[in-house]
């Protein structure tokens, strides 16, 4: 694994390397190098199994963080490629030409976060939400509780407890 990371560092500008486990690393790159690096990992280093593509909303920084998780089937290695993209008018290069099922992940991200992947097949079709006309629901500025209360007729009389407080009161009533 170390060897592979060194190879990558020689060829690409890596800003950060995180060792999660002995066989699992995360590396951060610039947005423009990402697809190039993923292609390199697939074709040269043989990380041929694409696991997932996911996004994290860093609303404070005004950025989305994308993670491409790849797997090396025979050596049992995992590598995650992280990159930051702008939150306003978020777009990212599509990777559907490398693995077909990336298109599905990109379709989901388009729906849930509003990240556009131009050229990805069927990216504009609804994935889980049919007829959604609000801001994408997984963005952190979307208030899901408020939306639910306004839309789905909450049944009155519901009470909730904070689990920590509730158990403290129940188990140690005298303290």
């Amino acid at each position: 694994m170390k060897e592979i990371i060194n190879n990558i560092q020689e060829k690409f500008k890596i800003s950060e390397v995180t060792e999660q486990r002995e066989n699992q690393y995360f590396i951060s790159v610039e947005k423009k190098d990402t697809i190039q690096l993923v292609t390199y990992l697939k074709d040269i280093e043989k990380f041929t199994n694409f696991i997932l593509l996911t996004a994290v909303d860093w609303i404070e920084k005004g950025q989305f963080q994308l993670t491409y998780m790849l797997n090396h089937p025979s050596k049992k290695l995992d590598i995650g490629v992280r990159t930051f993209i702008e939150r306003e008018n978020a777009t990212m290069d599509s990777a559907h030409h490398l693995w077909e099922h990336v298109a599905t992940f990109q379709r989901e991200l388009k729906e849930m976060f509003g990240i556009d992947f131009p050229g990805s097949p069927r990216v504009d079709e609804p994935f889980l939400l049919e007829g959604w006309d609000n801001i994408p629901p997984m963005r952190r500025d979307f208030d899901t509780k408020k939306y639910s209360e306004e839309t789905y007729f909450p049944r009155p009389g519901r009470s909730t407890n904070d689990p920590a407080e509730h158990m403290k009161k129940k188990l140690y009533p005298n303290e």
Binding site: S148, Y152, F153
Partner: peptide, 19 residues
């Protein structure tokens, strides 16, 4: 189906079926 259960504040699941 009665009051939303653990998905009571979800953006995509209904809370009361009888509506």
């Amino acid at each position: 189906t009665i009051n939303g259960g653990m998905y009571w504040d979800s953006y995509n699941t209904i809370n009361r079926l009888d509506h």
